[in-house]
Design a protein around this nucleic acid. Structure first.
Lengths: 335, 335
DNA sequence: ATGAAAGCGCTAACAT
DNA sequence: ATGTTAGCGCTTTCAT
């Protein structure tokens, strides 16, 4: 037997309108009636049908989030912080694993639209600009996280990648290193490009000429870290220090370094982007740029919910881009 | 201007029923009509309203999953594997972070019910047995993951915790250790209890008497790992080897061990439950019990979808409990 | 304070 | 092959 608002109404001897009022704590229901209704609800184990409610109210109280890959620590922290804030405001979260694949991203954007989520937080691949622009034009509420998209004007929450990388590389330079290698990811991404730029700025400020042999571009994945580190370190004229620009690549780098039998900091100085507790218990804990990952997620979600509620978050209709700062923790990975 | 199935119908000059048929690839629509409809759909950028469809079909093509804590590697792998399989069958996933908190668990169970998800995968806290039984009785499709609940009969997918722990501890014994400490979590959980039992079985088979000073029970969290390891190792009569029964506690244990300046394996032998790539690049990579985490998630999801489709997965209406095996990887954490 | 009834956008049974 | 229509379960306007 299916129970719905009608069953409750019948049982309580009132109309469905009254049940609805009680359900939403609407004023104007006599205390006595309310009691009777609540009794019926509990006796029938009635739970409102959110699907029907969403249809009627044109509001789902659900936000969608598309992340690159839940398996990486960065995104799982994002997922958690988004969910925390969403929940605080009574929203549910549909988590989608975009896998950094533009096709999956597009598919999920469509799924989220079909499900009429109230808003979307997107860690964009950088593609699908057309579709995303169309969404924005049809009044979809979107906040970008961690990266921007060429050709799309949209509110976003980012990290100051350049400054973070700059601080780390400058630290290496201050410690006396001159030949510093960098391993970074996709340059068509805000993150990859920014981190490279920070590296270059630190070098140039110190009057160290750019050496393209020391610059390796990969995919922000462990595999890239393994391979690029090998390329860099097998060179007879290898760098004295390494800056690795995300955690997954750092894992890869450490695998190669261990395999080659190199010791940090004796054989190689190191600084990395992204922190992890595992990094801090390594034999030589790594100096790292800490991203405010939790704030990234919560800030984006707060902004999204404001947008959903119709509050303006930027000024004069320009999209707002919030940039959060990083911190450098000094550990024992340099001489 | 809102566009719905009616707008498309008007534009294509057919009835909404025909649009619906095209949308769902129903046979019995003339090719020519279909083309016209598709054209109208694309021109209007129409996307079906899944909320309305769900209401009508009484089917949301959504499954809910409640995990302990997405921040831990274990659960994020689970989330990913569940999502992969769900997606393969055309289901979306609502991810809920139960935080191992019975109240949050209950709240989320209600949310999922209200949203009429087609099924639920639950990593249970062990509480809320009454509510969960009521759900099951009202025909909700639920599969438990990783743990069981006292007083609830429900399909489940587990790991052979006892056997895994047994193998690890037996290995330590085979390497010559006799005084072996264990750090484990909640004994009222299938996991905590099973892992302790495996430890005890290995000891008893080897004729080593149980020593309660060597058994530390905590919360499966980093903090417990830190504290319990300290208790164990500060004892003048400290164990020669340590078995830690999950990854978060292992992180904690390593923090304490590093802090105390102890060396593995010289000062202490180690074996742990759960693997991680970080564990394998430690100075002394740890011998570890590998759980088939990915299979856990995918097996549970496959089972859930079968249930949703009305296929029986157990025999004669008994719930089915699938137990997956673990593997022991030997590394360099013992003498 | 409460009820009647329309309608959110879709699907499915039935009719043509 | 296509259309008509009722209705999924709720909310909301308008009556009373």
């Amino acid at each position: 037997m299916k129970i719905n608002i009608k069953s409750v109404a019948d049982k309580a001897g009132v109309s469905t309108a009254t049940i609805s009022r009680v359900l939403r704590n609407y004023p104007g229901v006599r205390e006595k009636t309310k009691k009777r209704v609540l009794k019926a609800i509990s006796e029938l184990d009635y739970e409102v049908n959110a699907v029907a409610r969403s249809l009627r109210q044109r509001k789902t109280f659900t936000i969608g989030i598309i992340v690159g890959n839940v398996l990486s620590q960065f995104y799982s922290i994002i997922a958690k912080s988004v969910e925390d804030v969403a929940h605080k405001y009574g929203y549910n979260m549909i988590l989608c694993n975009g896998d950094d694949d533009p096709e999956k991203e597009l598919r999920y954007l469509k799924v989220l639209k079909a499900n009429r989520v109230d808003g979307i937080i997107l860690t964009p691949t950088g593609k699908n600009a057309d579709y995303i622009n169309r969404l924005i034009n049809t009044d979809a509420k979107i906040v970008l996280l961690d990266r921007l998209i060429d050709g799309v004007e949209c509110d976003a929450v980012l990290v100051d990648n350049e400054e973070g990388a700059y601080k780390a590389v400058k630290y290496l330079i201050d410690r006396g290193y001159r030949r510093i290698g960098i391993i970074t990811g996709y340059l068509d991404r805000t993150t990859g490009k920014g981190r490279l730029n920070g590296y270059l700025r630190a070098l140039s400020e110190a009057g160290i000429p750019r050496d393209d042999n020391l610059i390796k571009i990969g995919k922000f994945k462990k595999r890239s870290g393994i391979e690029l580190t090998r390329e860099l370190l097998q060179d007879p004229n290898r760098p004295e220090a390494l800056f690795v620009s995300n955690l997954d690549m750092t894992l890869g780098a450490m695998i190669t370094i261990k395999e080659m039998g190199l010791k940090i900091p004796d054989d190689l100085g190191m600084a990395v982007f992204d922190d992890s507790e595992w990094i801090s218990i390594l034999d030589s804990p790594l100096t790292a740029v800490i991203q405010p990952v939790h704030s990234l997620g919560s800030t984006a979600t707060e902004a999204l919910i404001k947008k959903i509620n119709g509050e303006k978050i930027g000024m004069n209709d320009k999209p707002i881009i919030i940039t959060l700062n990083t911190n450098l923790v000094i550990r024992n990975s340099t001489k």
